[in-house]
Design a protein around this nucleic acid. Sequence first.
DNA 1: TGACAAATTAAGTGCGCACATATTAGCATT
DNA 2: AATGCTAATATGTGCGCACTTAATTTGTCA
Lengths: 233, 233
Amino acid sequence: MSPESRLSWKDVRDQIHDAILSGRYGPGDRLPRDVDIADELNCARSTVQRAMQALSDSGIVERRRKGGTRVRPDPVTRATLDIPITRREVEQKGGRYGYQLIRRVEAVAPRGVLAACELTEPRTMLRVEALHLSDGRPYIFEDRWICLETVPEIGDVDLTGQNANEWLVQNKPYSRCDLRFYAVSADDSVADLLDAEPGAALFVIERTTWIDAAPITTVKAIATPGYQLLTRS
Amino acid sequence: MSPESRLSWKDVRDQIHDAILSGRYGPGDRLPRDVDIADELNCARSTVQRAMQALSDSGIVERRRKGGTRVRPDPVTRATLDIPITRREVEQKGGRYGYQLIRRVEAVAPRGVLAACELTEPRTMLRVEALHLSDGRPYIFEDRWICLETVPEIGDVDLTGQNANEWLVQNKPYSRCDLRFYAVSADDSVADLLDAEPGAALFVIERTTWIDAAPITTVKAIATPGYQLLTRS
DNA sequence: TGACAAATTAAGTGCGCACATATTAGCATT
DNA sequence: AATGCTAATATGTGCGCACTTAATTTGTCA
């Protein structure tokens, strides 16, 4: 009957969010049941449910069956990152993409690689070192280990022209992906490859992917100085 | 009538995901309309909608009204990061948290700070430099600029005992947050503060927050060597 | 007192419907 | 051909209902 149109779940989300921000509900406090909020705001419970899901996804509240909804006691900043394939990243910045295979050998994986893959038994893997170029200049150096048991086909692929990253993305989808970011000093060989000063601070992205429980690949991508990773706008 | 129970939206999501992974729908391809998928799988359209929303959120497909649903042409790795407040982070690793104010001055913000805040006109801000400690040892050095126009109350806060980060989190909620990650070499003063070798590679998190369009604070958090940022498990 | 079972509770999900909204495509007018 | 109106269309959203599931509380019995 009210002339104002119905509430959208985003309205509900914002109202609840505001109530939390204003301090009406502090960290750890329990919010009213969905059904009561729906009643108070005069909307359907499904609308409140949707709003609460959104708040739960952003890490603002925690929801548990029977336990109800609580304001997350330890506030976190939750951010979403998009990491495109390197070719795309270079081209989006207006650069001309290039790729150069440096080394391709089968070798016994060192402990660190096994650990990243969550493997306990040592095994032989395919190691691929390559350089991504932007306008002919070094952009990212990647040191990749590919699990031959999970991806036997990789043995037949010519990686001199074809980028291992892209081949894997297109031919070996993953179901899980772990990422790790840190900084490292350029040693002489990396400095040489990336055309950087030895000792320069470099940004590193380590990514490991699995299909179900089977590791596909783990890669250490070392960027040239000045590289920055931004949150999704 | 089939004895199997009804399909969950997660089942639908996984089926569509599998269809994409198997190559049945390639990058850029258009998927059937929700209603047709619902019909084929013998479930409600709302169930398909929910599944599609999830796939859209994970960056696997793109949906547009009237345009339909398409497999995202440029595959990305989408990851979610949780960045806790530093006290929490230290305590979760089993350390004893400490905090030390180094400097607190009002000063005209340099261009880089203004740019981070998306401000064009120069202005005076409050600069707070502080050290987060774990078990008495340096952990993160933060160099923060606080916008006095947005947060005038900060002038009355004693920041020698109270952590600016936590005060802001608890007293000045933000509606937008930008993050930026990169690597930097320790200059002499930072190396001294963090008890690191000069020139060591350090991981940096830059965070800027706004309430609506008004900037609250921008902070450069420089971590000690060895620091790693992981995706949410 | 403690262990286990049963009842209770609040969120999670599925369905079907109606309508809203954005975007494309088609058509007509200039 | 360029323009602008109109219709068609696929997703987005809201509602109400019934039922499921997980977790907590209560009750019972040893």
